[in-house]
Design a protein around this nucleic acid. Structure first.
Lengths: 253, 253
DNA sequence: TGAAACTCCTTACGGCATAAGGTATTGTGT
DNA sequence: ACACAATACCTTATGCCGTAAGGAGTTTCA
């Protein structure tokens, strides 16, 4: 359900994450050829997580997908924790980095945010990986770099903006995957599911409207599209609000 | 016995969450007096989570704190999953709801956001509770209600604003607890920790500055205060930006 | 031709959620 | 007064989990 970080040796994790940059110096050629690679293991691990979430994920499950035992993975990766760090970074690899050449920084930020959102929706388990300590790998670093590059031209203070953007994207992704899994795990359409939930509430909490008048009114308000669209709209609208705020800082009245 | 696959039975969870509202009808008085209450169990469970995080948390640990076995808890609560839902809602109970009477909606929102942030910092495990489906209990509902009440007077569209505020607060809380635990788990001060991390990076990725020029420049920029203050500042500043955006929607130029 | 270095395996341990079923305790119906 | 129903709590057991320990087979170097 929840992956929490124990310690883990940062040096070892970092070395694995950035291993492409440096030739492995300690590698001797003795012994049988490795049948697997770290990359293959990470790919298999991501596939398992994509299919069954982090709940169904385990070292045994990853090994099985590769036709190996769980223990054989420990030849390549020190612990589960490090493997998850590698998965986390690798999942940020193909983020399109589209860079609509010079359509203005606002459009570029929107594009960046939507790409990142799409990444989280492709790999919902990313949102469950707890960062007890921030471990930046090359791919996540590249995501950060690309938004910093966009912001650089605006001359705006980057820290708060970047942090807010990440929060907004992650939060929205969480909302969207929540509504998705609410629908799939119960096997009902989201419409049905929410109707059922509403009936249950009316039965359990008949005085809901008196206790929570504003919530009740909001629930009654018609909203366009299905529930997942609504969560998506909340993202688009929220991003617009945030960028309005950024613009008002960019061009002081 | 019918066991719902994977997730908990929403009906049972909701009944537990909102149980104060309805008199339990099925309760007969036969058998030994219960020595525990659901409230006591939830309180103990929260205490365990506050002390040791969700990874050190288990039904056994909660039972032990109450002088019982893990299995005795199952008399009161159907599964671990439901207990965590109850903990989650209960943790939102004492949010001050300060309501500075009429200091203007912007100040009120800021107050609300800071209270919620404080709640997340008091109970960092809240951020790790995976919302496979959104389960609103009375206390979390009250938090939602209070921000809706504030926004109601402004006449602004609530959905996107509320969603953005929650994202920003949760994301910031995560950043702050990350830097905190980075310091505590390694036993070094945050200053030392980041220096060490920097040294490691320079050694493993000597061409960092060429590959990630904007990130490198940002890292070099002086920033006030320690790292936790910085994360806190990112929250305050991000909130200001977001509220600027809200204001620009409130008063169209 | 060893010996070293390496991959991968089996086995085992302690911890987890929780199913199954036993026992003691309390009330109800007679 | 007494059987019995209903309940709280316990012990035990099952099948997961991460991973420590150590063994067997494979490849290369001295």
């Amino acid at each position: 359900m929840v992956v929490y970080a124990g310690q883990g040796d940062p040096q070892r994790t970092m070395a694995l994450l950035w291993r492409a940059s440096t030739a492995d110096p300690g590698r001797t050629t003795r012994g049988p050829k490795p049948a697997l690679t770290v990359d293959a293991i990470v790919a298999a691990a991501i596939a398992v997580a994509d299919e069954s979430g982090l709940d169904g994920w385990s070292m045994r499950a990853v090994g099985e997908r590769l036709g190996r035992t769980a223990m054989s993975l420990y030849t390549y990766v020190p612990t589960k924790r490090e493997l998850i760090d590698l998965m986390y970074d690798q999942a940020h690899a193909n983020l399109a980095t589209p860079v609509a050449p010079s359509s203005g920084w606002r459009a570029e930020i929107e594009c960046w945010a939507h790409d990142l959102l799409a990444c989280y929706l492709r790999h919902p388990w990313l949102l469950q990986v707890s960062h007890a300590r921030p471990v930046l790998g090359p791919h996540e670093q590249a995501v950060l770099e690309s938004i910093l590059r966009i912001l650089d031209r605006t001359g705006l203070p980057a820290r708060a903006i970047v942090s807010s953007l990440f929060s907004l994207v992650r939060g929205s992704a969480q909302s969207i995957t929540e509504t998705r899994s609410a629908a799939t795990t119960t096997g009902t359409s989201d419409q049905e599911w929410w109707t059922l939930r509403g009936d249950l509430m009316r039965q359990l909490v008949p005085d809901f409207a008196e206790r929570f008048p504003y919530s009740a009114r909001l629930a009654k308000e018609p909203a366009p599209g299905n529930w997942e669209d609504q969560a998506g709209n909340a993202f688009t609208d929220g991003l617009a609000i945030l960028l309005d705020g950024v613009e008002s800082a960019a061009s002081p009245t």
